[in-house]
Design a protein around this nucleic acid. Sequence first.
RNA 1: UACCCGAUGGUGUAAUUGGCAACACAACAGGUUUUGGUCCUGUCGUUCCAGGUUCAAGUCCUGGUCGGGUAGCCA
Length: 550
Amino acid sequence: MPETEAPLDFIREIVSKDLESGKHASPVTRFPPEPNGYLHIGHAKAICLVFGVAEEFGGKCFLRMDDTNPEKEEAHYAEAIQRDIQWLGFQWDGEVRHTSDYYSTLHDWAIHLIREGKAYIDEQSAEEMRANRGSLTEPGRNSPFRGRPQEENLERFEQMRAGELEEGTCVLRAKIDMASPNLNLRDPALYRILKKAHPRTGNEWCIYPMYDFAHGQSDAIEGITHSLCSLEFENHRPLYDWFVENLPVPNKPRQIEFSRLNLTGTVMSKRKLLRLVEDSVVDGWDDPRMPTLSGLRRRGFTPASIRDFIARAGVTKTAQTMDLRLLQHCLRQDLEHSAERRMAVLRPLKVVLTDYPEDRTEEIELPNHAGREELGKRKIPFSREFYIEQSDFLEDAPKKFFRLTPGKEVKLRYAYVIKCEEVVKDQDGNIVELRCTHDPETRHGLPKDRKVKGILHWVPAKESIECEVRIYDELFTVENPDGEDDFMSVLNSESLERVRARCEPSLLDAAPEERFQFERNGYFVVDMDSKKGVPIFNRSVSLKDSFSKK
RNA sequence: UACCCGAUGGUGUAAUUGGCAACACAACAGGUUUUGGUCCUGUCGUUCCAGGUUCAAGUCCUGGUCGGGUAGCCA
């Protein structure tokens, strides 16, 4: 039983009642992706729902590859899907299942329908079928093949299956109602000829079942109790139920639809994501700017932050566009507690302490997490020369600028209060170095006698190491790229910036996927492109910044 | 234009199923702070519209408006 904190969403409500009434002893759900693309944050909603329901109510959840279209599906997609689901933190019950496991049962059931007079072989061309389907407002017309004798149908279907007929010459259709206001019921196609090798069944079949003829039946075969899917299948439910009623299925699953999840500032359709990949707008399906699970993973999002986000989104039937900033909030909240702190300077500006002995070096010991002593400490050498952030110095600063400016003081995090005495420029007038003095009394705190508001992070000039930091921004310049005529016309040309940064020496051996907070900068994750001795960090999300927006 | 679904602050979700519209994010203002972070406090709504039922309506009824989905031999 679920913990009783939050109110149940409408689906969990239904499941809960079905258990109370004794309709089911425990729920069985399934996640049925088509292996023709990568999973994205929208899928995470479905995954969290179906696995969550099973977990919370003591049931099971299966993973079933919905592989009925060998033209689009590939094995590597199936592998990526499994990896992403497990990374998110879920494990399906037993082996991965496949709709293709049920091809022979489905084929038997097709014959069953023909024998019952409820299916026929239509030899109209695809164009004729479309023309005779009618439109949204006009009823369709019966196919001239609709009334052909049962034996002929059986014979034709056998020819289809035996490979004696060419692709496109005919299809098997259910005989339902060409005048139905629900287009899905206008004699839907059940089987088509496709002379393609299937990733799993090879050349065993040259006819493949359509989604509608495969999905509900697969659910029934697996003993699914609640078949949860997104809203666009709502109009398919009468057909789903029609098959369940008209076929000798072992049990009757119930389909329940919920709304898909969209994210502001991005696109979610497989077609559009594929376009981004194929046009090299991004580096691949796992580019850190992609809303795919593998992209979010590489960006540094944690499974827990995504699950939290999905939980906060809830489950309803209203179209859902979630604010990207909520997802970022979930990440910050997770990492605020779990990520160790480090110092890195993204755009270094050299500082020389003129009153600090040249041959002196102090070992500064600093906590890995100011709020969590148990995470330990590390050391950074401090001496006469170090780097601060270019943006932490301004020659002509406005009144509310709490950072370094000529003649003013700031505190170096875990080190001294320094004062800017001189600005060194090159021939072009660029600031290349700051000459400062320090207050030796301030090593362990702020001065009592005067106010020093600004605190800057820093790295030692000599011992810090060079690293690459990748700063990501949104892929699109508008909040709803789907609303544009051409979503490719609103691409953000500055969605990736690579900077040569310097970080503290303790980061030298950081392993891919390790996460840190770079103090005052944000949360960063080690990218898998990192080379030995030259770490690469992706910025997962910045820290909240109440200064720069003013 | 037919059918299906939906409508509560900028966003998402609640509301003991007819009883003071709550929570979170965002935004804004303030407090704390050796991260302009975290944390804490405050501000931000005629529940799509019009009628009706009722002591009482976000919730029930009638009509409308707006938004989404559907015309693959895709899923």
